Simulated scan of single mutants.
Amino acid sequence: MKLVIISGRSGAGKSVALHVLEDLGFFAIDNLPIGLLSELPHHLPNSNNRVAVSIDARNIVTDPEGIQPHFDKLRDDGVSASIIYLDSDDATLIERFNATRRKHPLSSKQTSLVEAIEQEAHLLESIAEQADLRIDTSNLNIYDLRDVIKQQLQENSQQAVAIQFQSFGFKRGAPKDCDFIFDVRCLPNPYWEVQLRQYTGQDQPVIEFLEQDFSVRAMLSDISGFLDKWLPSIIASGRNYITIGIGCTGGQHRSVYTAEQLAARFQQQYPQTLVRHRDLRLANKD
């Protein structure tokens, strides 16, 4: 039995994630009481060999022992269990609740929305620390989130691990869901070449500009060497999803080029290598 646990703070996209898994053929259970988690294998038909459940902070409150004993029992029973944890920054969560006029599940007359969001983060801390995959949805819409989850969970018989190279611009903040972040702002910036401003790191004029510089080639070699050395150990520890962030100023040129080049290098060894450009569609300069 393969079990995927969806958790995270309210407003971060748990319902969307659960629906995606249901579309992928998982038997989906929303808001499962945590006390029933370890009992799932004994109460589901054998035909339900792929199950997805969502667990939120309200479930944690009802069980003083938390998720760990149930998670340990699942693994002892031979269940392949993984956790996907969704989160957003506080400001985004507040904006989403205000826009939808929904009540936060932990808010009350005595607890404000801001306090409820902070309390929820504390309650879910133990789950967040054990997550196999963390996704920061602050800059994702519903369709982006669906694509990210589908990409991460696509099964591949040749290689189970999914590696994602994600470009971004530091001026919009570093993503929270990366296992590693490499800063390439020290490389030559195509933005200062007037004839290159209209292009991105996916376009040939920018590619040629960057490829001719020794520091760019050295950066690619050093990052590749680091990942070649440490990815096998990380994968051996049981990680199924690894996200590697590549950041420049605006997320248009250097980070996009570097992410594309690294993905191409690792694609053969890790067939489920993915590329995502967080800020490429949001700005027109680096």
Score class of each variant (00 low, 15 high):
20 V>D: 08
95 E>W: 03
71 F>V: 04
271 P>S: 10
179 D>C: 05
47 S>H: 12
230 W>S: 01
179 D>W: 11
5 I>F: 00
258 T>A: 12
103 K>R: 13
283 A>F: 03
46 N>E: 15
204 Q>C: 08
87 D>M: 00
3 L>F: 01
201 G>V: 10
126 S>C: 10
72 D>F: 08
17 A>Q: 04
207 I>T: 13
99 A>W: 00
182 F>E: 12
97 F>Q: 09
268 Q>V: 15
109 K>L: 09
40 L>R: 13
54 S>V: 05
94 I>Q: 14
205 P>F: 09
155 E>G: 01
28 A>H: 08
95 E>I: 01
221 S>M: 06
55 I>G: 02
3 L>P: 13
203 D>V: 02
12 A>T: 09
115 E>Q: 06
266 F>S: 11
146 R>Q: 12
59 N>S: 14
247 G>C: 02
57 A>F: 02
166 Q>C: 08
244 I>N: 01
136 D>F: 00
67 I>Q: 05
258 T>C: 14
3 L>Q: 11
194 V>P: 14
223 I>K: 10
196 L>V: 03
278 R>N: 06
269 Q>C: 09
39 E>V: 07
231 L>S: 02
234 I>L: 15
96 R>E: 11
103 K>L: 02
96 R>W: 07
176 K>E: 12
247 G>L: 07
236 A>M: 13
60 I>M: 08
169 G>E: 03
242 I>C: 01
4 V>F: 04
277 H>P: 06
63 D>C: 06
170 F>G: 00
77 D>C: 10
152 Q>I: 00
174 A>F: 09
132 D>V: 07
190 P>K: 14
193 E>W: 13
190 P>C: 12
101 R>H: 15
235 I>C: 12
114 V>A: 05
101 R>S: 15
93 L>T: 15
279 D>T: 01
162 A>P: 15
236 A>N: 13
55 I>V: 10
274 L>M: 10
47 S>R: 15
171 K>Q: 06
96 R>M: 07
5 I>Q: 01
185 R>S: 05
203 D>K: 09
111 T>F: 12
21 L>A: 03
14 K>V: 11
197 R>Y: 04
15 S>P: 10
175 P>A: 08
129 E>I: 11
280 L>W: 05
191 Y>L: 11
159 Q>E: 13
34 I>W: 04
275 V>T: 13
218 A>K: 14
201 G>M: 14
86 L>R: 04
161 V>I: 05
110 Q>F: 04
78 G>L: 01
148 V>C: 09
28 A>F: 10
13 G>Q: 04
167 S>D: 07
104 H>Q: 08
221 S>F: 04
176 K>I: 07
169 G>D: 00
52 A>G: 02
168 F>G: 00
70 H>A: 06
126 S>T: 15
186 C>P: 02
122 H>L: 10
68 Q>G: 01
149 I>L: 07
222 D>C: 03
215 S>D: 13
34 I>R: 03
92 T>R: 13
146 R>I: 07
116 A>P: 00
